[in-house]
Every structure is written in C-alpha cells, then in structure tokens.
C-alpha cells in the first residue's frame, strides 16, 4: 500500500514537472475579457508559430492589483487604458521599447503617437479606443436619454433597474461629469456634494457588474446600464433593444494600449505580437469584431460598412465633450477610495 502511494506520488510529480517543461514558444497576455477574437489569436499562431496564453481581468484596477501581487515576471504584455499606462509607467512596471524594435511602429496614427500618457510611445502601442457612457432599454424607457440623470437621478421607469460598472475609475469619472466638477477635485464642498449625490443615487442601482455589463442588458436583468460603446453594439446584435447614450454633460473617452511589461519572460515574442497588432489587416479584423475604433493608419478602408454608420461610434453633434479619466495622487485618491467604499458598503 505504501509502495503504491510512493509510486503514485512519483508519477504525478513527474507529470507535473513534464507539463511545466513542455512549454513551446509562447507569449503570455494579460487581457481585458472578451477583447480579442479567436480568429485573430489563431492567425497569429499560424503566422508565427507562437502560442498565445491568455488570462483576463475585468478592470484596470484589478489588473494592476494582480500584477502587483506577484504577477510581474509571469506576463509579457497587458492592455491598460490611458491613465493606467501612466500609473504603471510611474510605478516602473513597464519595459521600454527601444527604437527599431517594432518594425510597424510607423503605422500608428499621428494623433495617437505622442500621447500625454505615453509620450513618444515608449512603452505601449494603441490597441483600441472608444467611449464609456450608458445604454438604455428602449422597451422600458422612451424618454430623453442624452443626460447623465439616467444613472444618477434615474427616471421612475428605470429606478432600481440600473447596472453600474464595478470600476471605481469609471464610476467616479462619470459622477464628476454629471456634477460638472473636475476629476480628482480636492474641493471639500464639491467632494461632499459628490458623496451625497452618489449615496442618493445608489437605491436606483440594481447591481455593480463589469463582466456582465452586456448580459444584464440582453437578459433584461437591468433596463439601463453603464457600458462601453462597442459592447452595446454587441448587445444589440444579441437582440437587446438598447440605445447607447452620448449625454450632453459629457462622457468618458479611453484608449486601451498594449503595453510591454517589465521582466517579460517572452519579450521577443511580445514584440512580435505588438508588430502583428500594428498591421492594418489584423487591426481591421480586431476592430470589426470589437466594434470600437483603431489607432492605426490604413485600417479605415478595410472596415465593415456598418461600422462607419454605427450609432455607437458616431457621437451626435449635440453630445457633450469626451474626457479621459485622470489618475489622482495618493492623498486625493484616499478620499475617493472612502467615497467608493461607503458607496458599496
């Protein structure tokens, strides 16, 4: 009996070591969920022989937390949004891409090349850009939706049926837009008003979900919800009668970027993936699937016809300004953390 155990243990230990050693050429991607079509992954592997190993997260903050809790050195690239690139670069978590390491770097559209969050694109390349606001189920509510009141001062039809994203950054930025105050404001009266406003709005919210932001609208579990523009296009394709709003107070604009992580175990392969994602042909496949927008030249002619006229991708003339999320300093952030915890408490 003991021998049997010993043999079993030895065999399984061997098997464990064997699986660990049998690693082929690969690149380990820490990615937002549902953000890369299988066809594109297969195409990359077919062209380069490199396997894509993928882990997913549902918010920039969760990605940062996982990386800081021992994730560094295990992933090659991740896909942080604008403000998060700045934070990660500031924390020394990103590796510099040297001149000439990316053959296709010239394909980046000029407006996305010298961006404030990554001047000269030292650490990252554009992945996709789009907007965050909210969508409303038109079967439930037919009134005017071009206002952030839908989320923070919901009409009776939507009360208790609103889903919020479970990300502090986006909820707080949206709330600041609603109040007409600056993000990362340190004005006491403004912050108190912000806190009171959120507390008053909370009873109208049914849940905090990021990864089910689309499904709750499709299934009818929520009648309105914060969502990313391309995600609402997908929700409509899945049969939801939802309309994406461009509120007059303004909305969030973001750019997600593929960033090279410090201590990447497969750095060379990561650069190959980045080059791959700067080829217009591949970016077109990606963009047609995500239904967001690309930051690479030469993609537009390759896009599906519908994408050009997609309501989600074309803000109406009377839409408010699109603003990027700002990263607050540690002291200010502590105040926003308190507001957020009190909100979810």
């Amino acid at each position: 009996m003991k021998n049997t155990f010993a043999r079993l243990a030895a065999t399984t230990a061997l098997a464990l070591v064997a699986t660990a050693a049998a690693a082929e050429e690969k690149v380990v991607v820490f990615h937002f969920f549902e953000y890369m079509p299988q066809a594109l992954i297969d195409k990359f592997t077919a062209e380069t022989g490199i396997e894509i190993v993928m882990d997913t997260y549902d918010s920039n903050e969760a990605m940062l937390a996982t990386l800081k809790a021992g994730g560094m050195g295990t992933y090659d690239v991740s896909v942080p949004a604008d403000y998060m690139v700045k934070i990660m670069a500031g924390e020394g978590m990103l590796d510099e891409i040297k001149d000439g390491e990316l053959a296709n770097k010239g394909n980046i559209e000029p407006q996305w090349l010298d961006v404030a969050f990554d001047a000269g694109r030292k650490y990252s390349i554009p992945y996709q850009w789009g907007s965050t606001s909210f969508a409303v189920n038109r079967d439930v509510y037919q009134g005017d939706i071009a206002t952030t009141d839908i989320l923070f001062d919901s009409p009776a039809e939507l009360a208790g049926k609103v889903n919020m994203l479970d990300t502090q950054g986006e909820v707080m930025a949206m709330a600041a837009i609603h109040m007409g105050i600056e993000q990362c404001s340190t004005d006491r009266d403004q912050l108190k008003a912000l806190n009171d406003m959120l507390q008053a709005a909370k009873p109208n919210w049914v849940s905090f979900n990021s990864d089910t932001a689309k499904e709750v609208l499709v299934s009818g579990d929520a009648a309105a919800g914060m969502i990313w523009n391309g995600f609402n296009a997908k929700a409509r394709a899945e049969g939801a009668n939802t309309e994406y709003a461009y509120p007059k107070q303004g909305y969030i604009v973001w750019m997600d970027n593929m960033a090279l992580l410090q201590d990447a175990p497969n750095r060379a392969n990561a650069l190959k993936l980045m080059d791959f994602l700067l080829e217009p042909e591949n970016v077109a496949i990606l963009t047609n699937w995500t239904q967001y927008s690309a930051g690479v030249e030469g993609v537009t002619p390759l896009l599906d016809e519908e994408l050009r006229t997609l309501p989600e991708a074309n803000p109406p003339a009377d839409a408010g300004p699109g603003v990027f999320i700002e990263a607050c300093d540690a002291e200010t952030q502590a105040i926003y953390d308190r507001i957020w915890t009190a909100l979810k408490q």
């Binding site: 918010s59 937390a65 996982t66 479970d166 502090q168 919210w205 049914v206 979900n209 953390d337 979810k344």
Partner: peptide
C-alpha cells in the same frame, strides 16, 4: 447579490484583487 452590498469576503478580496489595493 449583484456585488451591491459588500460582505466581509468581498471587502477583503477588493483590497487585494480589486479597486482598493490596500
């Protein structure tokens, strides 16, 4: 519960894997 009302488990999780990072 829709992650709407924190319980202890979620509170702890959020400090290590979520928004708070404390």
């Amino acid at each position: 519960g829709g992650a709407r009302n924190f319980m202890i488990g979620s509170l702890i999780e959020e400090q290590f894997k979520g928004n708070a990072g404390n």
